[in-house]
Design a protein around this nucleic acid. Structure first.
Length: 424
RNA sequence: GGCGGGUUGCCCGAGUGGCCAAAGGGAGCAGACUGUAAAUCUGUCGGCUGAUGCCUACGCAGGUUCGAACCCUGCACCCGCCA
């Protein structure tokens, strides 16, 4: 195996790291125990989280031991954002989300067996819930300098803005304590995270150093990855519908597949390096192909298939590929057999109706448009389709002739927003 | 605590009594071009409705007026300067 640090750099994953040479040496000397934390701020992880999750996976494959930490406790406090105070979620909600995220994380790492690289699942609620006020203030708080805490960018930004609660201000203490706990319990000596986590990570390193006495510098390490930004300047991982979730209930495997398939040519190479587990040679070959014949979208297809398979499994991926082929294919929709249409429709936002409505109502029912006005507008603009045929009449009504296999009508707004109507 | 300025549609921002659902820009959406890409150009962009009608909207609550985003009163929040 090549040097894992080199590999991560080749992927463009390294933003900042503590003493890089010491980290290389630690990796070379044997299994390093590494952790990354995920706060339950929603019911599911989203594609943005994959950067770190998959880096943990990479590190495990490179012979190290990953700890996936779910922030059952820190999720109740809230990591301060530079912009504004977070809205606290109900404790019962956070508990529910903690469980869901724990389940999701467990799919990406190998927890089987009891070897030196077997993954560990942790929840900081376990050691934080019992933390009493005196221990927090006397044993932990004494190691934190208010001067340093105030100097952090996020804090400065908030003090210049809408202010910050003591709750969020204290967040860094809990995360630092997490690192200390994992250091003690599991010999964890590396924390990774997004570049916005640098301050929290170094705070944890400081705490470890102070509590364990002046260990030789470099005993514990930190590494952050770059925030993924698209070529058009917008945040990675968002679509019209919001975040692209890993939970199939929130983002269907089909939508997930489509998300990757629609990657910008300028971004796909970076995505492959960050998310793909193919060899460097294969990735470089895909990059070449993409550069020479972008219309073939070989890189996007490879990326979409690999990630859909990883997150949703081979069967779901195959179904998404099939549905995409059927829905965007050149052929006549009426020529598709019933099972193909049925499975394609299952991937789309759909609505059941008792009687055939107008095209306008059908567009509204499938939520392809926000209102009747928007539906009329879409038709007027030539952006509405029934079974891939443009609709020109604003008052058009669906008829039996529009039914595919007597049951379904495929609706489309614009180039790639599809929905289905099912006669029930 | 005192004085002054501000609060407009998803965001920024013009508008100071009727011609304002409200200039302009951005985002979004659609069309053309394409490759389910980007860029570009064009159109569109509160809701309902059989389209020239109705409802909702210019921080909140009242008031003046035939008529108010625009005037008056009170309230809330924000920003400057002074203490």
């Amino acid at each position: 195996m090549t040097d894992i640090v080199e590999d991560l750099k080749w992927r463009g994953l390294v933003a900042q790291s503590t003493d890089e040479d010491a980290l290389r040496k630690a990796f070379a000397d044997g299994p390093v125990t590494v952790y990354a934390g995920f706060d339950p701020t929603a019911a599911s992880l989203h594609v943005g989280h994959l950067t770190i999750v998959l880096t943990l996976r990479r590190l495990q494959q490179a012979g190290h031991r990953p700890i996936a930490l779910v922030g059952g406790a820190t999720g109740l406090i809230g990591d301060p954002k530079p912009s504004a105070e977070r809205q606290l979620n109900e404790a019962s909600t956070v508990l529910d989300w903690t469980g869901r995220i724990r389940t999701q994380l467990s799919a990406f790492l190998d927890f089987d067996g009891d070897g030196p690289t077997t993954a560990v699942m942790a929840n900081n609620y376990d050691w934080t819930q019992g933390l009493d006020a005196i221990s927090l203030l006397r044993d932990l708080g004494k190691h934190f300098s208010i001067n340093q805490m105030l100097a952090r960018d996020t804090v400065k930004s908030r003090l210049g803005g809408e202010g910050m609660s003591y709750t969020e201000f204290s967040y860094v203490i809990l995360q630092s304590n997490d690192y200390l706990e994992l250091y003690r319990r599991h010999g964890c000596t590396l924390q990774i995270g997004g570049s916005d986590q640098w301050g929290n990570i170094t705070a944890g390193l400081d705490l470890i150093r102070r509590v364990t006495g002046n260990q030789p510098h470099g005993q514990a390490h930190g590494l952050t990855t770059n925030l993924l930004v698209k070529s058009d300047g917008t945040k990675f991982g968002k679509t019209e519908g919001g975040a692209v979730w890993l939970d199939p209930e929130l983002t269907t495997p089909y939508a997930f597949y489509q998300f990757w398939l629609n990657s910008d040519d300028r971004d796909v190479s970076r995505y492959l390096r960050i998310f793909s587990f193919r060899s460097h040679e294969e990735i470089e070959e895909l990059e070449r192909e993409s550069a020479e014949r972008p219309a073939g979208r070989a890189a996007q297809r490879a990326l979409a298939e690999e990630l859909t398979t990883l997150v949703h499994g081979a069967d779901q991926c195959a179904a998404a590929v099939e549905a995409s082929r059927a829905l965007f294919g050149q052929g006549d929709l009426a020529a598709l057999d019933a099972p193909t249409v049925a499975s394609a429709v299952a991937e789309l936002p759909s609505a059941k109706v008792d009687a055939l409505p107008t095209v306008v109502d059908a567009l509204v029912a499938t939520e392809l448009v926000a209102s009747k006005s928007a539906a009329r507008r879409a038709i007027k603009e030539g952006g509405a389709y029934v079974n891939n045929t443009k609709v020109t009449d604003e008052d058009a009504v669906l008829t039996d002739a529009d039914l595919l296999h007597g049951r379904w009508v495929l609706l489309r707004r614009g180039k790639r927003n599809l929905g289905a109507l099912e006669l029930g």
